[in-house]
Design a protein around this nucleic acid. Structure first.
Lengths: 245, 245
DNA sequence: TGATTATTTGGACGATAGTACAAATATGGT
DNA sequence: ACCATATTTGTACTATCGTCCAAATAATCA
């Protein structure tokens, strides 16, 4: 096809230098996958976005699945390490209520903030995980089960220690709901803006975190299902300020 | 509203006769889309699953998008009608606590139970919606905004009437979390079974509904963020049985 | 019945998918 | 400067995609 007129011109056209094409491909793939999903993005799309040749993608990552795998490898480590640190600190909080909130925050925060270099990297990767779990990608399913389940168990255990009267099963459910809410907020933040008629911004990560933490802490403390305790009556409305705490 | 009883006969003899190919294609497409997503399923996959010719799909629905559109048309009406009925009934519940629970149940229940003929139709369609929102399908985005937003507003308004001291914005967030939790449970139910080490079944719709309702009612009643009320201390642990209600 | 319409069929079209590979080029150590 | 290696490039391969179309078949009704 048409040859490039001059190497310098091409490089100048790109906003940044490209010392490491491999990194550029990874960044482009992460951005595209987290926006349109894995199936909807082609290797050629990624190559073009990275200013690379489709063959380079094959050279560096062998297959499209391999590229996705490498993205996960890049993020899982730092994110779970951050979670462990925050969880360890949260466990040391004296007050039960504060501790519970700190634990939930330790789970949610690393999903939003970047674990590595790029701004918004955490949000982007978590959105990618959300889309992947919806698409049911088989390559990713194994990584999730073997990389994230340990972290999930650690958090559930920590919560269970703070709420020993609630069966573990219920806490698993409620932690599951937390992850679903977190994913959905990252996938369709504009829905919040729309339904609130502009009084809330779904893309405001800070606000989303606070809302999510507050709602989750309340949900975790709700009476369990089995133990024959029907949802208590009237008391809540009699104590509106503090609501359910 | 009752559908043809003859439908059962047709289904029983699925391998032999095919009186209505259009319906068979719709059913196959719904099943495949809700399992693998829109992008991952080809028109030929659908045709094969329905025992039809790929050309028949084009004949009946013009395009692949048209097929998806028709699936939505089939379900949206009955589901939202059911929700309206249940919501109207829930509004008439006297006790505030019971009413709140009934409202949430009115939102969640039609998403699980079938609105039409097939068993598990409701669950399947809701799972489809979950995957579609993750894939960011443009064809569907318009339908969602114009068909489901009215319903969402109605539920938020009803909740707001029962919890007037909580700003609408917070209720929007919490309703959003509810939908995310609902979606995620339908998309990856096996995760609940895995993390609970077998003590819970993620595919048990009845149990999922109860857990979801309990957690959501508690979350809705939590103190709002802004009004300077820090999460209350100590009281919760002093009242473990009822927790946050 | 025959005539008209509705549906199904099988094959084809151009576009694009993931991947492979040889040639061209860039890089780094000596 | 040279050589060995790493990387990039251009292109080609096969497979599959959504859609289209003319012919074959089924269904409907005068």
């Amino acid at each position: 096809m048409v040859r490039k007129p001059a190497k310098a011109d091409v490089k100048a056209a790109a906003s940044t230098r490209k010392p490491n094409m491999r990194e550029a491909i990874l960044a482009a793939a992460e951005e595209l996958f987290s926006t349109y999903g894995f199936n909807a993005v082609s290797v050629r799309d990624i190559a073009q976005a990275a200013g690379a040749n489709p063959g380079s993608v094959t050279y560096h990552f062998k297959t499209k699945d391999g590229l996705l795998l490498e993205i996960y490898r890049r993020h899982c480590g730092p994110m779970n390490r951050r979670r462990s640190e925050l969880l360890a600190a949260a466990r040391r909080v004296r007050d039960v209520q504060d501790r519970l909130e700190a634990i939930v925050r330790a789970y949610v925060l690393p999903a939003f903030t970047s674990g590595s270099d790029l701004a918004g990297g955490g949000t982007r990767f978590t959105r990618l995980r959300a889309i992947m779990s919806a698409e049911g990608n088989e390559v990713v399913r194994k990584i999730i089960a073997q990389t994230f389940d340990d972290t999930s168990h650690a958090f559930i255990d920590a919560i269970h220690e703070s709420l020993p009267h609630i069966p573990r099963t219920d806490l698993v459910w409620r932690g599951h709901f937390l992850l679903g809410a977190l994913y959905y907020t990252l996938v369709t933040p504009e829905r919040v803006s729309r339904l609130s008629r502009g009084s809330a911004d779904g893309t405001d990560a800070g606000h989303a975190i606070e809302e999510l933490v507050r709602a989750t802490v309340a949900a975790l403390q709700a009476a369990p299902l089995d133990q024959g305790t029907p949802a208590p009556r009237k008391a809540a409305s009699a104590n509106p300020g503090r609501a359910l705490t």
